[in-house]
Amino acid sequence: MTGSPAPPSRRGRGIPAGPGGRSDGWAAFSYLLSGMIVYGGIGWVLGHWVIHSALVFPLGMVLGLALATVLVVFRFGRS
């Protein structure tokens, strides 16, 4: 059955171009932002109170961004 549209499933693939398609973009953006906030936050707390180094905060943010990218690939990248 080539040419027939995929059934509407929302997570990841499935969403056709159109108004609804933007939800995926926002979800991916939300993950990237969350990754940086969560791991950047952990890094900031560690650097401020435990390790006493300004380096941990940016390291945490980069790690968070990397993990969030992995997450985006897992959720949206496979078809």
Binding site: R11, S30, Y31, S34, I37, L71
Partner: peptide
Amino acid sequence: VPSGVPWWILWLLAPIIWFSDILVR
């Protein structure tokens, strides 16, 4: 949490997902 993610990275990714879905959304 999406299925098919190896367990060793899952616990690193889960906080991102929860933060994203509960707070960033």
